[in-house]
């Protein structure tokens, strides 16, 4: 029986996840930027990687009504400074088609920005996670990117694979290099943009994969580690919080407000 990603994480208990990337200098005055990690938005599933459309919409409304700005990774420097500006980064992994129905309209409504980390091979197709779930197409990515509200990140071209619990760690250096290059080439051809963002499949990485990613030119590397993006954070190990139906509006706010 194929394992779901949730099952996989439960089984692995994060054994492959590297130690948390702790902030080097923590200044209370400096803004801590929460980085939200969403996956699918759906009423049909209720798992670790799904949030219901009404809860997601309520979270976005809360961000808006509380004056949050949502930013791209390359704007981080402008925002991490003393002051009471509120900023958050919204990311979506895998690139589910539900983004078009439930997220993009809210981005336009609120003037929010979001980053989608797509799995190259499955763009315009679907993946099985409990059941088949449709994924965004290049046409849609072009449409979103054109709005200036969406940027594309890499979730590997075709290494988002269980691989006996190893994930990307189970591939050779060449396989990983080729994969990153393929993603970057295809994304450049399809969108005209270079890809500077990488999100590790299953949040798994090590020194070897990190070196490959850096050499491939990724400037912002997203993990699943707990924490916030803040002054002197390592942009190659950006922490994120996975948001799903377990985050009711109160726990969502707690994370946003820094009370992890």
């Amino acid at each position: 029986m194929p394992l779901t990603r949730r099952d996989f994480l439960k089984l692995s208990s994060g054994a492959f996840i590297l130690p948390l990337s702790l902030p080097k200098n923590l200044f209370a005055d400096y803004l801590k930027i929460p980085v939200l990690m969403y996956h699918d938005i759906s009423n049909e599933f209720d798992d670790e990687y799904t949030i219901s459309p009404p809860l997601f919409a309520a979270q976005m409304e809360w961000l808006y009504s509380n004056g949050y700005k949502t930013i791209f990774f390359n704007e981080v420097d402008k925002f991490i400074k003393p002051g009471d500006d509120r900023a958050a980064i919204i990311t979506f992994d895998d690139g589910y088609a539900s983004f078009g129905s439930y997220t993009f309209p809210l981005l336009k409504e609120y003037g929010f920005k979001a980053t989608i980390n797509a799995i190259g091979k499955h763009i315009g197709s679907y993946i099985k996670l409990a059941r088949n779930r449709p994924l965004l197409s290049w046409d849609e990515y072009r449409h979103f990117i054109k709005s200036g509200l969406v940027e594309l990140g890499c979730h590997t071209y075709d290494l988002h694979i269980y691989k006996s619990g190893l994930g990307i760690l189970g591939f050779t250096q060449k396989e990983i290099e080729d994969d990153f290059r393929l993603f970057q080439d295809v994304a450049k051809k399809e969108t005209g943009h270079d890809t500077k963002i990488l999100a590790w499949p299953y949040g798994l990485y090590d020194k070897k994969t990190m070196n490959i990613a850096q050499r491939a030119g990724f400037k912002y590397i997203l993990t699943s580690n707990e924490g916030y993006l803040q002054k002197d954070s390592d942009l190659l190990k950006i922490p994120r919080r996975n948001i799903n139906n377990r985050h009711d509006l109160v726990s969502f706010q707690q994370y946003l407000r820094g009370g992890v």
């Binding site: 309520a58 809360w62 509006l249 109160v250």
Partner: peptide
């Protein structure tokens, strides 16, 4: 109506401020 389809569409008790557009 849109966000809850095809599930139940009715108010529930909430004290969290779950408002949507």
């Amino acid at each position: 109506k849109y966000l809850n389809w095809p599930k139940e569409i009715k108010p529930v008790i909430s004290k969290q401020g779950c408002w949507v557009m």
